[in-house]
Simulated assay, not measured.
Amino acid sequence: MDRFRDPPMDFSSLLLRLYRLSQELPIQHFQDAALSLVKQVLPFDSSMWGTATTTPEGIEIHTVHLHEKSPEMVVAYEDLKHQDLAAASVFGKSRVTHTFNTDRFFAGAAHSEFRGFLQRFGHENFFVSAEGIPSRNFMHWFSLYRADKHAHCTEDERLLLGQLAPHVMQALALNRVMHLDHLEAADRALSPHGSAIADGRGVLYHADPQFNALAQAEWSDWRGPHLPAPLLAELALGHECFIGRSIIVRPYLEQGLLFLKARARCPADQLTPREWTIARLIAKGESHKQIAQALGRSPATVRNQIQGIYEKLQVSSIATLIEALRSAE
């Protein structure tokens, strides 16, 4: 029986700390903290953590987090990724953890260029742990690198990482969903709402039932696992929000990911910027004469605009106007 089949109590304590960090730390700090925690039981010098798909030219990185590693490494990797036999060995598998010694695995003249790249960036020995979705040609992985030629990765360490890695990846998913919850608290106007997380290529990492229902109402033939093409194209332009026929989507770009909040369109979405200004002043209790004076317009003009606002919002009192504005602010 291998020594890690029944994890010791300190392993359980590590998991408790990991999941607690996923709830307590902001998204920009969690991955470094999680890797530092892993380092306490599995020594390594640097790490790369991300998601990818495969192409004929090698893996196509969607998201990447570098831990104690220069961005120069990722740039250099792009020119050599088609030679990465280590990545090829884990792709297409549902769950796998492998160990590699650079001199042995990339031995011979045919691999000298990629071997030189690995050694240049301190990848003498390394682990790769991955979870894949073969049907989508998609992989979530992280690599742990050792710069010492003699610090070989042992079988016991591989087994330990194989048990730990799914929890590390799940903790990251929870941390991202927690970040969505914080966005909700800061943007209560989009409640009730739908939430989703996607990368810059539109691959969905999370989508709640409300988001799916809202998206399907807008695009009846959409079923995922990517964002609807019209939505992704609009978000790529850097607009503050997407306004569709029946949906409003607001993106927040952080850590290379799109955190999306969506809601159904409402009557207040029809208001012009000028009407919004007047509506907010009405909500504060200002009379049409006071509003006219503040905006430098005639009372008659403002009175007519107020009537138009009430008609657009389908309301008949200040209380219901305030409620209508809250649904879209």
Score class of each variant (00 low, 15 high):
87 A>N: 03
62 H>N: 12
251 P>E: 06
220 S>C: 04
282 I>C: 11
280 R>P: 06
323 E>L: 13
208 D>I: 09
210 Q>F: 07
70 S>V: 07
145 Y>Q: 08
303 R>E: 13
273 P>V: 04
68 E>A: 15
168 V>D: 03
62 H>V: 08
170 Q>I: 09
40 Q>W: 09
164 L>S: 11
154 T>Y: 03
203 V>E: 05
194 G>K: 02
138 F>K: 06
202 G>E: 02
299 P>C: 06
110 A>N: 00
255 Q>L: 12
68 E>R: 15
51 T>R: 10
114 F>G: 00
27 I>K: 08
174 L>E: 01
177 V>I: 13
69 K>P: 06
126 F>L: 02
269 D>N: 15
152 H>T: 12
22 S>D: 02
5 R>A: 15
18 L>F: 08
161 L>C: 01
92 G>M: 03
316 S>L: 11
288 H>R: 14
297 R>K: 15
69 K>L: 14
78 E>R: 06
75 V>I: 11
16 L>S: 10
31 Q>F: 13
44 F>N: 02
175 N>S: 14
157 E>V: 10
203 V>W: 08
248 I>G: 05
308 G>H: 15
276 W>R: 14
215 A>E: 02
36 S>R: 10
24 E>S: 13
137 N>R: 11
202 G>Q: 02
189 A>Q: 07
268 A>S: 09
252 Y>P: 05
63 T>C: 06
94 S>D: 07
191 S>A: 10
242 F>Y: 07
106 F>R: 01
282 I>A: 06
269 D>K: 14
236 A>Y: 01
128 V>I: 08
152 H>E: 12
174 L>Q: 02
124 E>R: 07
294 A>V: 05
255 Q>M: 14
135 S>F: 10
102 T>V: 01
322 I>W: 04
224 G>I: 07
99 T>R: 12
28 Q>I: 10
206 H>D: 04
16 L>C: 09
35 L>S: 04
20 R>F: 09
140 H>A: 14
253 L>H: 13
320 T>V: 09
219 W>S: 03
22 S>G: 08
100 F>T: 00
183 L>S: 02
253 L>E: 10
98 H>R: 15
227 L>P: 04
116 G>E: 00
300 A>Y: 10
314 Q>S: 11
55 T>P: 00
136 R>L: 14
32 D>N: 15
291 I>S: 05
284 K>E: 15
81 K>Y: 01
250 R>F: 02
179 H>L: 06
138 F>N: 04
228 P>L: 07
321 L>C: 02
